Computed example of a mutant assay.
Amino acid sequence: MTIDVMFPYYGDVAMMKAAVDSVLKQEDRDFKLTIVDDGYPDDTLPAYFAELTASDSRIAYSRNEKNLGANGNYRKCVGLIQHDIVVIMGADDVMLPNYLSTVRQAFREPSVSIVQPQVEVIDELGEVYLPLADRIKAAMRRRATGSSSTAVLQGEPIAKSLISGNWLYFPSIAWRADAIKAHSFRPEYDVVQDLALALDVVMTGSRLLATDTVCFQYRRHRESDSSVRALDGRRFDEERRFFDECAADFQRLGWGKAALAARLHLSSRLNAVSLLPKVVAKRAWVGLGKLLGHAVRF
């Protein structure tokens, strides 16, 4: 069973090449790598991609005629899925050699549509580290999965856990193709589209499997797009709209505890509070007002 590795690309060339190389070094060789270039401006790329596709028939490459943005390129990748299992990989992340074999094994569990393996967090230099945000994610994951090395979760418990604090690492997730195709990414979101997709799948009754096998390295950038959006308040405007929508959806399903967690969105509020010193230091006064409003408004 071939696994689709969808690779939406825009960004650092060296990190992209390292990510591609990590796919090609997988122990499990049954994959199809599809690179969708969103028009990154680098004159060396045409020759690199031409050589890549000529050297390996499992690699396909296309370049968008116009820049679609992250969400648009994700949705294009969904439309190109050909096989039953798919991962939409980050172009600066790294698959460890056992990644594909790990998720393939996990999908032997019946009715699982989402597989979240264990990840290492790396910085811009590729060094493994664990910043505060990821220590919190790890704690929330342990709370959801317990002491089991493999946990299968579904329904309101996983919805409540993820809406309380998203401990998933989207680029490392493997999906059933039929589940991701049924929903795709909501076009109105630019920051929480990954969590929205996971919850859409969960709300249809699908199950999530979390395994403790470390097989992926997630790169944490200090000044990511989501960080910039957070400082000027845009991230939290989007999160509030999303939480309100989730609260209504959960309530319709009779998931009262999950709906309450969505309305409270405590981890999001705490994140806004944690950014206040940085906003003050940058004198981003508009952002300061938005962050304070997000932190205290109900």
Score class of each variant (00 low, 15 high):
229 R>I: 04
244 D>F: 11
211 T>W: 10
178 D>N: 06
175 W>C: 00
176 R>H: 01
203 M>R: 15
229 R>P: 07
239 E>D: 12
227 S>H: 14
232 D>L: 01
166 N>Y: 04
221 H>D: 11
176 R>T: 10
237 D>C: 06
216 F>A: 04
194 D>H: 00
230 A>S: 14
183 H>A: 06
217 Q>A: 09
241 R>A: 10
232 D>M: 01
202 V>E: 02
165 G>P: 01
194 D>N: 01
249 D>F: 11
249 D>Y: 10
226 S>M: 15
217 Q>R: 15
235 R>E: 07
187 P>Y: 08
179 A>E: 03
185 F>N: 01
227 S>T: 11
207 R>S: 13
193 Q>Y: 03
245 E>N: 10
169 Y>G: 00
224 S>W: 10
167 W>N: 04
207 R>H: 12
177 A>P: 06
172 S>L: 01
169 Y>F: 13
223 E>M: 14
203 M>D: 09
247 A>K: 07
169 Y>L: 05
248 A>Q: 13
173 I>N: 01
188 E>D: 14
220 R>L: 14
179 A>V: 00
211 T>I: 12
221 H>S: 15
223 E>P: 03
244 D>I: 08
232 D>Y: 13
228 V>W: 11
183 H>P: 02
189 Y>W: 03
214 V>R: 12
214 V>E: 13
191 V>F: 13
167 W>G: 05
235 R>A: 08
173 I>S: 04
199 L>T: 01
209 L>W: 05
213 T>L: 12
232 D>C: 14
204 T>S: 15
165 G>H: 08
201 V>F: 08
